[in-house]
Write a protein that binds this DNA or RNA. Structure first.
Lengths: 142, 142
DNA sequence: GACTAACCGTTAGACGTCTATCGTTTCCGG
DNA sequence: CCGGAAACGATAGACGTCTAACGGTTAGTC
């Protein structure tokens, strides 16, 4: 008998991630948003980024991907690219009133979704999950 | 003071998944493969699928995505689409000798990668990780 | 001061994935 | 039988992401 033949851990993580991402996307769609839009609004709003490169890092994507989404969001009137005084290379991304309004709506959805995801899990379990995932990521990042 | 402001669990799962997926992709690339190729070879080799639709489900993608990859793999001589006797709608995917050879090489990489991912984790911890992830997925799947 | 290197964001092109739709083929109820 | 529904796989088009390469700007060095 060839043992239990368990599914690789990495595959389980990936599949779970896709399930969560898809559900989150649907939830955001009901409020007129998408995952990239939400992440950009969230990171841009804090204003703690100096350049687009930093904003991209905060969002978790590469530069060209951020450029792509900013193009769409600027076209939709959610953000503007403001010149940085004293450095003609960079641009600062700022939310328009419409962007701020969408942010508030999406935040409600995101908060509710996070509650839904953690349902039935104790604080300690969530903490252990974070720890285990961090271990996995650390194991492959060098 | 605004509290610890912890990152949402879903985001942590997604980020970890991307880190793992990227590292796995790199590992497979050294052996001349890619993630979709590996998953298709793995699922198709068991032969436990009747149709492409079932194969797609086993791989974890939709029909058109599988079609896309099969086109490339057939062009590369890794698999062939064989007619199903008695049903002119379906086609069975079978590995060529070259496909079988690549599968064996990629399997070594995949096994080694799984070991690397689980490094420093006890069996019980891995089991709990599986349980926690399954809970998250179950919470959003209805 | 001019030259080179570094930084910043965009463009171009690729890949993997999805939904919607279509043409064939098979099945089934009247 | 036969006509509509279901199943199967392919196509078309969209989206999010990536790497590689480019043009414009700043900084550092001799």
């Amino acid at each position: 008998m060839p043992g239990p033949q368990e599914e690789p851990v990495g595959l389980v993580v990936t599949r779970t991630s896709r399930t969560l991402a898809r559900a989150f996307e649907q939830a955001l769609a009901t409020a007129g948003g998408s995952t990239p839009t939400w992440l950009v609004l969230l990171s841009a709003r804090t204003g703690s980024h100096r350049t687009q490169a930093e904003l991209a890092a905060a969002v978790g994507v590469r530069g060209p991907t951020l450029t792509h989404h900013l193009d769409g969001m600027e076209r939709d009137g959610l953000v503007t690219r403001a010149p940085v005084p004293g450095d003609r290379r960079g641009q600062r991304v700022v939310l328009t009133p419409a962007g701020e309004e969408l942010f508030l709506r999406l935040r409600e959805v995101a908060v509710a979704f996070d509650r839904r995801v953690r349902a039935g899990l104790a604080e300690a379990e969530v903490a252990q999950l974070r720890r285990l995932l961090a271990t996995l990521a650390g194991n492959v990042a060098e």
